[in-house]
Nucleic acid binder design. Structure first.
Lengths: 223, 223
DNA sequence: ACCTGAACACCGTTCAAGT
DNA sequence: ACCTGAACACCGTTCAAGT
């Protein structure tokens, strides 16, 4: 008999061998997904990790939760970068570097980023990591707006959506033009400046729309 | 024995019943993919069309080529719109309406648009439809640039990629905020204007990069 | 020529038996 | 507790037999 569904496994204390195996699966999965995309098979991951595939299911629940665990790591890393950049006195530049780092990460691991969108619905951990990321971005954006570097009719979620947009649009060309994303970041960033801002016809997404789309509670801190 | 692989089927003359069945499959597939995404099963499509699923494989080769046939229709429709808009004397406005229509179509059928990216590699028909679309967009952009409505350091492919970017970014929210895409089109379009254009750090994709990424010959007509 | 139920291969997931 | 080969279910694809 299988143990009760361990779908929501916040990485509690594990026996030594289990802990080591968990790390192996994470490493193998990260490589395989990056190379072969979301359709990479659990068999491949298990083989690369040197384990039986049932072991992966025991630890992570299913394929989506394995992706969620990987996503958590990336999102948290990006949030930490955002928090560090907050100490930069030039907030416009800090925001831009933050956006650049986010695009670069998303573009270098397309599969994972495709997954992140639909994942916060499943995993509270992912949602929490996302919230932390949004909070960090929010601090950068507010300060940049305060300094007059960014137009004030934009919200943090707007900025994050545009970052995701650039990454996804450039993805098919990324193997052959690895710096192309900078071009579109330049263009989009020009659209974020106050210099030539025209009125926007649609309001930003409301809290209830966000909740409906992403499940759970929306991100706070929008003007 | 199955007939020789009919992978590349340019919709030649078919027997009456086959023609009718082909149309039924297209209609069923269009609906099912739009509702359930790319992972919709061939069984579902066959059931909705009232046919055995082997019939679909006989006519279209495989799932990807079925998607390609659908994609062709959409791309051609969009190209025709672009050609009509070319007669508008206000080229900036025409380009913007063209972009709006493209975003709206992509957002309303996410699955198909996800597929279009990787498809021109397979189907010459898709590639041809894409080329026609690009030519139409190219005429609109050049005239808009000539009239001073759009900055001159952008290419047609830039515009198309940005359109795809907006569509993909907004997709997860589209069910709950169906007009949200206009917001990001506004912002991006502000980045396309000459008013506050800053220098761009990266050149547009080269012909050989496009060829490598999308297979076949690149689109012509870039400055 | 075209149509199709049955068979095959692959992959996510679960189970029963192992340590 | 944890590990795993075998079994199951599902889906894309092909086949052999039908009209």
């Amino acid at each position: 008999m299988a143990a009760e569904p361990q779908s929501v496994i916040p990485h509690r204390r594990l026996r030594g061998d289990a802990e080591r195996n968990r790390a192996r699966v994470m490493e193998a999965a990260s490589g395989v997904f990056a190379e072969e995309g979301l359709s990479a098979s659990m068999d491949d991951i298990a083989r690369r990790a040197g384990l039986g595939k049932a072991t992966i299911f025991r630890r992570f629940g299913d394929k989506n939760h394995l992706l969620a665990a990987l996503a958590c790591d990336r999102l948290t890393g990006m949030a930490e970068l955002g928090e560090q950049l907050a100490s930069d006195p030039d907030a416009g530049s800090a925001l831009r570097r933050f956006m650049a780092a986010a695009v670069e990460q998303q573009v270098s691991d397309r599969a994972l980023c495709q997954a992140i969108g639909g994942l916060s619905r499943l995993e509270p951990d992912v949602h929490e990591a996302k919230s932390r990321l949004i909070r960090a971005a929010d601090a950068l954006l507010r300060e940049a707006q305060h300094q007059g570097a960014i137009r004030t009719d934009l919200t943090t979620l707007d900025v994050m959506l545009l970052v995701a947009a650039i990454s996804q649009a450039v993805a098919p060309l990324h193997d052959y033009a690895p710096r192309l994303w900078r071009r579109y970041l330049d263009v989009v960033f020009d659209g974020l400046r106050p210099d030539a801002a025209n009125p926007i016809s649609q309001p930003p997404p409301t809290a209830s729309q966000l909740k409906a789309a992403f499940g759970r509670c929306p991100w706070q801190g929008q003007p």
